[in-house]
């Protein structure tokens, strides 16, 4: 088992708007010294509520924002030390799936165009067979490439978003609340699809959600966050069977366990 992502004591602070002229503005610690490692092909779930820092952590792993301290290594490379063009090339290897299946596709573009978007960064010509292959892998038809996003249901759009994420054959997928907006029966279909694709393509996944039941169904490892702090980190089975923290217990109650 080789390490793919290594996050070492990463912190991120936000300066709040200044409320008093003479007082220093408040500083909000979004992520406080978070650490984890993610092996190739494995799945780490990050659970927490809004404001827990889980999305900020995901954004730092995706190199959308830089940590104030600590380091994030992807396949041994510190991604926040890379130059802009090196980082753009590196992005082929880690892709993201978003929460809102209605917002993550440009409404004015055919879905084939959107799916091929990551390929265009490195290819001058986009090979149509790759788009078709990605569409079929997520359970849609190659002919769907010529349709617009509004012609699809929420679950189908999430499949399209997944097709875009896997079209470059990445090593890592970051899924930020990727099934939270979906109906229960659609949710199960998408979770199964993600598991199938992982097994088929050897993808590692960082799965972020507020719903412990969803995370429990797909993750090997679990990291529970609250107010930017890591409360628990370890094997999913162990944390779910013997939660060490009251907060984790309350999440279990809410998930209907």
């Amino acid at each position: 088992m080789t390490t793919l992502v290594e996050v070492k004591s990463v912190s991120r602070h936000y300066r709040m708007p200044r409320e008093h002229l003479l007082r220093a503005p408040e500083v909000l610690t979004a992520v406080n010294s978070a650490s984890f490692t993610l092996n190739r092909g494995e799945t780490l779930g990050i659970v927490g509520e809004s404001g827990s820092g889980k999305s900020t952590l995901a954004r730092m792993v995706m190199a959308f924002e830089a940590p104030d301290s600590g380091e994030i290594r992807f396949d041994g490379t510190d991604i926040h030390a890379l130059g802009a063009s090196d980082l753009r090339r590196m992005r082929q290897r880690f892709q993201m799936i978003f929460q809102d299946p209605f917002g993550s596709l440009d409404p004015r573009r055919k879905i084939g165009w959107s799916i091929a978007e990551p390929l265009r960064v490195t290819h001058a010509e986009t090979p149509a067979h790759k788009t078709a292959e990605a569409l079929e892998q997520v359970g849609l038809r190659a002919a769907d490439a010529d349709k617009y996003p509004h012609e699809f249901s929420g679950g189908q759009r999430q499949r399209i978003a997944i097709a875009r994420a896997i079209v470059t054959r990445p090593d890592l997928i970051v899924a930020d609340e990727a099934v939270s907006a979906l109906d229960v029966s659609v949710q199960a279909q998408i979770l199964n699809l993600l598991m199938d694709l992982q097994d088929e393509l050897g993808l590692a996944m960082l799965f972020i959600s507020h719903d412990l039941a969803v995370v429990a169904s797909i993750c090997d490892q679990l990291l529970v966050m609250q107010h930017g702090k890591t409360l628990e980190y370890g094997a999913a089975t162990q944390i779910l069977n013997a939660p060490a923290h009251d907060y984790t217990k309350s999440l279990l109650t809410a998930a209907g366990a």
Partner: peptide, 26 residues
């Protein structure tokens, strides 16, 4: 601020390419 723009950034597109492909049409 739209998610499809974030998705394009995640795909590795430059800001110029995003302006051309997503911002201008919208």
């Amino acid at each position: 601020t739209r998610e499809y723009v974030t998705a394009a950034q995640a795909a590795g597109l430059t800001r110029a390419a995003i302006s051309r492909d997503h911002i201008l049409p919208n």
